[in-house]
Simulated assay, not measured.
Amino acid sequence: MSMLKCVICGMNVNEKNFNLNSYAFIDGNKKSYIRYCPFCGVNEIYLQEDGKVYSVDVNTLDSNTIKILDHAMKLEVFNGDFYVEASKLVKNENLKKEFLDLSRIEYMHANVHKRLGGFKELSELHKPDYTKYKKDEEFLEIAKKREEHAVAFYNKYSKVVYSEIVRKTLNALSEVEKEHIILIETK
C-alpha cells in the first residue's frame, strides 16, 4: 500500500492508520482499497499519492467567507462535542464506538475550517446537558438532525463563497455528512 495524502485535511494515510475511525463508515477501508480518509471521512478522490493540501491565502478571502468558515468550525465543534457526550450515555457498545469515531471526524472538519480561515484555535462552546435523554434512539435522532443541518449548511454556503478551494472543501465535507446520515439511519 502506497502512502496517500488527503488534500482536504492534510493527513497521510498509510497501512498503520488506514482503518482509524472505522465505526464511522458503512463500508470502511481495506488495505487493498482505501475508500475514505480515516481522519476526515472524504472519499477517495481527495486521497492522492502526491497530493497538495487545499489551502488559501486568508488575506484573499472576503469577510463573508471568513464568517462562513468560522460558523462551520463552530458547527463541527458543536457536533463533535455532542458525539463525545453521546458516546458516554448510549447503552449499545457499538453505538458508543460509532459516536466516538464520528466525534473525531467532526473535530477534524473543525480543524480544516480553522486552517482555511486562519483562526488561531478551535472555538470553545457551551456544552448542553444530554443526560435527559435515556434511549439510544433519542441520541440517534439528534445525531441525524445534526448531520442534516450540517449538509444544509454546507450546501447553502458552498454556493456563496468566492474561493474555489473553500467551495470544494465545503462540498467534500457535505458528502461526508450525507454518509453519516446513511450510517445513522442503518441503526
Rank of each mutant, 00 (worst) to 15 (best):
E121Y: 08
E175M: 12
S63N: 14
G51E: 04
V90A: 12
I26L: 12
I105L: 12
I68W: 06
Y46I: 06
I34M: 04
A110K: 01
Y23V: 05
L173S: 07
N19L: 10
A172I: 01
K156N: 12
H149L: 15
N94C: 00
L95W: 01
F39C: 09
Y36E: 08
Y33P: 10
Y133W: 14
K168Y: 12
L69C: 01
A24H: 10
G51N: 02
V161H: 03
V7K: 04
Y107G: 06
E15K: 13
K159C: 01
Y107P: 05
I34Q: 03
Y83T: 01
I66K: 09
G41M: 04
E49C: 10
S63Y: 11
Q48N: 14
G118C: 05
K120P: 08
R104T: 09
M3Y: 05
N19Q: 10
M3G: 07
G51Q: 08
K120N: 10
R115M: 11
S174W: 07
L61K: 03
F119G: 05
S103F: 00
V7M: 11
K16F: 14
L183P: 03
K96L: 05
F25K: 02
L61Y: 01
K97D: 09
Y33G: 02
K31D: 06
I182K: 15
A172T: 07
M73W: 00
E49Y: 14
K114F: 07
K132E: 12
E179Q: 10
V160C: 03
R146I: 12
N29P: 13
V58Q: 00
K132W: 08
L69D: 02
K156L: 13
H149Y: 15
E147G: 07
L4G: 03
V166R: 01
N92A: 09
I105C: 09
